[in-house]
Design a protein around this nucleic acid. Sequence first.
DNA 1: TAGGATTTCCGAATTGAATCCGAACAAGCA
DNA 2: TGCTTGTTCGGATTCAATTCGGAAATCCTA
Lengths: 211, 211
Amino acid sequence: MPRKPRQARSRATVNAIVEAGFIAVATHGPTGATTRQIADIAGISVGSLYEYFTNKEAIFKAMSERFVADTVAMIQPLVPELVRKPIRQTILDLLGHFRVFLQENNELYLKCARHAFTMDFEEYLDPVHKLLVDIVMQHLLHNPELTRVRNIPAMIYIFINGGVFAVIRHLSEDNPPISFEALSEGLADMVGHYVSQELSEPSGKITAGPG
Amino acid sequence: MPRKPRQARSRATVNAIVEAGFIAVATHGPTGATTRQIADIAGISVGSLYEYFTNKEAIFKAMSERFVADTVAMIQPLVPELVRKPIRQTILDLLGHFRVFLQENNELYLKCARHAFTMDFEEYLDPVHKLLVDIVMQHLLHNPELTRVRNIPAMIYIFINGGVFAVIRHLSEDNPPISFEALSEGLADMVGHYVSQELSEPSGKITAGPG
DNA sequence: TAGGATTTCCGAATTGAATCCGAACAAGCA
DNA sequence: TGCTTGTTCGGATTCAATTCGGAAATCCTA
């Protein structure tokens, strides 16, 4: 049974384990990363590792939470500025910052995010989802006419689950078939055009009914 | 060193191993699936498994190739019909068929696709990419005015890497925040609106230049 | 269709990583 | 300082991955 750290010393240990986890996974992938490696990098023994984590997966879980928290913390301060810009620019900025974030520390996070599914990152994406919803909501406040755009929740869903992973995959590719700029402008235009088109359509448009 | 099967018997064995792989991964995930399980499900012994596959990862690789080949084989016959329809409908149809495909056999493929990154499915997506490009090209032949749409390669990239994974994730969720219909219509509208908007813009539009 | 060559299959043995556990060490406190 | 609780350690155990030396099936040819 894993224990809760009480003293500063053990809290530092837990922290070191999570950070060592990122390094080990970035270097050897989630399968290749061994608990011994993680312990070595963290400068502790394997035994200590199991004091705080049930198993290797629990370390991955902590890493996921850390990653998501760091992502949110990275974006949060940008929000006030972002919500004032036109949609297209907001998205370009978001993607640009996300790229830098992923590539920091010799691509530490990027190399881990690549294996996101393995480590169930997705199950912890909720805070990111909430943040995006928040940004959209504030956008709506600044631009009330956008309220006419249909299907905003679906757009957010697609953007998070599709856009973000498209970016992660793109940055992980050795020879991507398109440039990062083409990708991010594609995403920005896709959303931007969607909104423009929605706004240019008669507001009472009815889509296929049930049945 | 893995051997090439020569007789029908061993070809059946290899096939059984790959299919057992899908079942094992669908049931226990790529980490939880053991070679013994796979061998048991395939009705052979562990030893035989290593006659044809260097290691567990090689089995995953074969599974990825099979999955991609099956996906292409599923879509291919639909192409002639798809390329005649309006874009929005083409996408809705594609996604609908893809959904059925993933959910067949008690969601066998869906449960595996969820772990796509772990098993490096992405590295084998090329045939799917080519197929989509083909569909788009044929669309262009039927609707020459679409040639004015910019950034088509980026759209395809986003659609494959974003759209497809958004769908896979959505179908894997217990309580998705939006319905599948909302998701697929969102994707269809996103592409459809993008195209409409592009066509409604003056053709010589210049985006930011280099530097 | 017997006998040897080739291919396929088998499962106990080996290897190495994940995890456990009881002893040793450090910190907090009286 | 003596006692209690928190923390660390690393050898021992367990279990999955992979190997290997034949046994069994199939093929081929006389």
